[in-house]
Design a binder for these strands. Structure first.
Lengths: 239, 239
DNA sequence: ATAATAGTGTCTCTTAGACAATATTTC
DNA sequence: GAAATATTGTCTAAGAGACACTATTAT
């Protein structure tokens, strides 16, 4: 045995932001075959000398122009069905990126057109390759991580109010949260929020205090997503 | 641009079991370079027509002889540092497998010797490649998942007692749990445990009721791992 | 009897969620 | 003034953890 089976390795990006009261994902329109003209998640081949995360950051910069420091990036999972790309055998290492709603117009070097699309507007079959599944996994990861990590702040500008943070939660989870309970919990969770001292800022009523994200890497106790328990009584007998 | 950069893709396995009051991982002794004679996680190259999970299951069978149905298998994450394998550029898709303590002697087809080793006995540098990191990530995933998923049952035989299940939690978490509170919570969590009706089985005192795993895929509410909150008052100073 | 494990009940303290009340702004 | 958002406080119900107590086996 001299040679190893040869694969191509790509990174695909699920880039999420909160925009116009909707959770949006960055999609590009493919210029080349396969799936030319179809929408897809941004991504590309990993270069020979490049780490997986480096490749993801490079693609992120190329396709979105998003500055490095403002975006949260983590590996999601890998997809390697033998027929997922008709060109050759490809294993894709998907990454999840969370960005604030920047005024950045998407300058695509690689892609014909990049656009923010509400995730709810995308149905099965709307994205090329197996990107429907990748997107679904990425959104679910983001929803889950808001519970026990301070990641919701990645959707916010450097300084933000509790109300803005709550709106992020409501939009990502698709559920209304009580503003008063949320305020108490968010500010009480150690390391989650750091007061800036400033308070002006308006989106309607009384000025709110401005916070920046604190040093915590986990939320203890977690914020709980509504509607995840069963209506009291029937898990046993059913099926 | 005609060709894509060429990579080799492997699957590596973090196979965990609970054995002799310790959380153990399956390691093999490498017969070939690189790292010949060193211990490593089992794994191997993905075949050209093979899905990632198929490859993981194949390696699991080859290296451990573990029957397919008895083992929980899930993808962990991928590792792709450019220099992680001196032979060629390799991306490894690590998988996590949880197995009950089978009386199976490890029949290694591929590996010189396979052995169960307590994870606590392995320090940095004891495993080849970047397998220290892979193992650490796998153990942490397992510990975390016991909280909110019924995965602890994957460490148990098909029928087990609440006490056996509790011992799994205690060993994996490395913390003592109150038997009475654990019993109440485990049996009250909907879909977690299914009574078999049988009750004999002895490991000392009064016979215990036998259960099998229920249909639940998540534990609501979760079982909470002790010692994860700060001692009331100081998050700032601590590390 | 003692030792060991299994299982139930009870108590207290904390937390989640509902929601009243107040504060500070714009219109 | 009304309307909107921010922030604090209070109440209640549910869950976590401590732990007394009973049950059933082996020795």
């Amino acid at each position: 045995m001299s040679a190893f089976p040869s694969f191509a390795v790509t990174v695909d990006l699920v880039v999420l932001t909160v925009r116009d009261d909707a959770l949006c994902v960055l999609v590009v329109e493919r210029g080349e075959a396969p799936y030319a003209g179809r929408r897809a998640l941004p991504g590309g081949f990993v270069h020979p000398g490049e780490d997986l995360e480096q490749a993801a950051r490079r693609e992120l910069a190329e396709e979105t122009g998003l500055a490095d420091g403002t975006v949260h990036l983590e590996q999601l999972r890998s997809y390697g069905a033998p027929d997922r790309d008709p060109r050759t055998r490809v294993v894709s290492v998907a990454h999840l990126a969370l960005a604030p709603d920047l005024p950045t117009p998407q300058a695509g070097t690689d892609a014909a057109a990049a656009a923010w699309v509400p995730v709810d507007s995308l149905g099965p079959g709307d994205l090329a390759f197996d990107h429907d599944e990748v997107l679904r996994d990425g959104v679910e990861r983001a929803r889950a991580k808001l519970e026990y990590s301070p990641l919701a702040t990645a959707f916010c500008p450097p300084e933000f109010t509790v109300g803005e943070l709550r709106r992020v939660y409501e939009i990502v989870w698709g559920a209304a949260l009580d503003p008063r309970n949320f305020h108490r919990k968010a500010t009480a969770t150690p390391g989650f929020l750091e007061a800036t001292g400033e308070r002006t800022n308006r989106q309607g009523g009384r000025p709110a205090e401005l916070f920046r994200r604190g040093p915590a890497t986990a939320l203890l106790p977690p914020l709980s997503r509504p509607g995840r328990s069963e209506p009291a009584g029937g898990t046993s007998a059913s099926t």
